[in-house]
Simulated assay, not measured.
Amino acid sequence: MEKLLVGKSLEDQLDTVIKELAPKGNISYIVLQFDDEEESTIIASKGENTIHSSASLIKVLIMEYVFHLARTNHLDLNDTVPLSRTPRVEGGGALQELVAKHSFSYLELCRLMMVLSDNIATNLLITVLGMENINARAEQLGVEEIELNRMMMDFEALAEGRDNRMTAMALARLYKHIFECRDRDAFGREMWNILGRQQFRDILPFYWGEDVRFHHKTGSLDRVEHDGGILETFRGHFCFILLMSDTDNDRGKELGARVGRIMKEFVEEALP
C-alpha cells in the first residue's frame, strides 16, 4: 500500500500523546483512506503488524463469516439458535439476563454481538459455526493474522496461552472488505449498518459528538483497550484502528479518546 508523506506529521502528533500517556504500553495504530475498488492509502501507522490480543474485535470476523454463509446460501439469517446451546458467561451484553428458553435468529445474534458486544451471542455463533471454519474464512480473506482460538470469557484457555489474536493491518484489510460490500447487496448493507450502531463510544469517537457516525467495534480486557472502524467525512472514508495492550484501562481510554480527536482533525483539516 502507498503511504502518504504528509502523514508523518500525524504520526508525530500521535507518538507524542502515546509517550505522554502510555510510554510503556504496546500501542499500534493505522489510519487509511478507503476508496471503492481501489487500493487503500496509508496515511499514518505504527506497529501495524504487531500481534495483539483481539478482545472483542474478533467479533467483526465472526459477523463477516455469518453474512458470507448467508450470501452463498449456506445459512438462513432467520433460522434460530436456542440460548441453551452454550453456557452462560458474564461480560458485555444482554443475554446473560435471560432464562435459557429463548431462541434467537442468526441476524439477531449478530446484532447483539456487535452492537452490545454480547458474549453469549458470540459464543452461540462460535458453537454453531465452528471455530475452525471461522479461521478458514480469515485465511480465505487474506487476514490470517486474525485468529479465533477460544470462546469469550474462557479464562482457562487464556491461562493456557490460547487467545484470540490480530494485527491492526489485518483488521484494516477486513474492514476494507466489508466497506466494499456495503452497497453490493442486502447482506453488505446490513453489516455496514450494524457497525454503525455500535453503542460503545468511549474510545476513538469520545470527543466527536453523538451525531458523528463511526462504523466500528471496540474491545476490552484487563490492560487491553481497542477500537477500530470507518469514519465517513466530507473528505471521504477513513479507517482508524487503535490497539492498546499492556496499559491500564483508564489510561487506555483516555489515550484512545485523544488519539481519536487527533486523527479526525487531521483527516478533515490537514490533508491536502
Results as ranks from 00 to 15, higher is better:
residue 17 V to A: 03
residue 106 Y to H: 11
residue 185 D to W: 08
residue 254 E to L: 15
residue 100 A to D: 12
residue 150 R to H: 09
residue 94 A to T: 11
residue 30 I to M: 04
residue 131 M to K: 14
residue 77 L to H: 04
residue 199 Q to L: 14
residue 109 L to Q: 06
residue 136 A to Y: 13
residue 261 R to K: 15
residue 268 E to F: 04
residue 186 A to N: 11
residue 115 V to A: 05
residue 55 A to S: 10
residue 36 D to F: 12
residue 151 M to V: 06
residue 187 F to M: 13
residue 67 F to R: 03
residue 82 P to I: 09
residue 162 R to W: 11
residue 110 C to V: 10
residue 191 M to C: 05
residue 231 L to D: 01
residue 226 H to S: 03
residue 74 H to K: 15
residue 198 Q to M: 10
residue 245 S to G: 11
residue 14 L to D: 09
residue 260 G to C: 04
residue 11 E to G: 04
residue 252 G to Q: 02
residue 211 D to C: 10
residue 72 T to S: 14
residue 23 P to I: 13
residue 153 M to W: 03
residue 236 G to H: 04
residue 86 T to L: 03
residue 55 A to E: 05
residue 78 N to A: 12
residue 257 A to N: 06
residue 164 N to K: 10
residue 271 L to M: 15
residue 129 L to D: 05
residue 127 T to E: 13
residue 137 R to D: 05
residue 109 L to N: 06
residue 162 R to F: 15
residue 212 V to C: 12
residue 59 K to E: 01
residue 194 I to E: 00
residue 162 R to G: 04
residue 235 R to Q: 14
residue 144 E to N: 13
residue 81 V to C: 03
residue 135 N to R: 13
residue 68 H to G: 03
residue 33 Q to T: 04
residue 254 E to K: 15
residue 200 F to R: 09
residue 245 S to F: 01
residue 90 E to H: 12
residue 113 M to I: 11
residue 128 V to W: 07
residue 13 Q to C: 06
residue 67 F to N: 01
residue 53 S to A: 14
residue 211 D to H: 13
residue 204 L to V: 03
residue 4 L to T: 08
residue 25 G to A: 10
residue 50 T to Q: 13
residue 185 D to F: 12
residue 254 E to H: 10
residue 182 R to D: 00
residue 96 Q to F: 12
residue 208 W to C: 00
residue 87 P to A: 06
residue 121 A to N: 06
residue 207 Y to G: 02
residue 192 W to R: 04
residue 267 V to R: 12
residue 61 L to R: 08
residue 193 N to M: 11
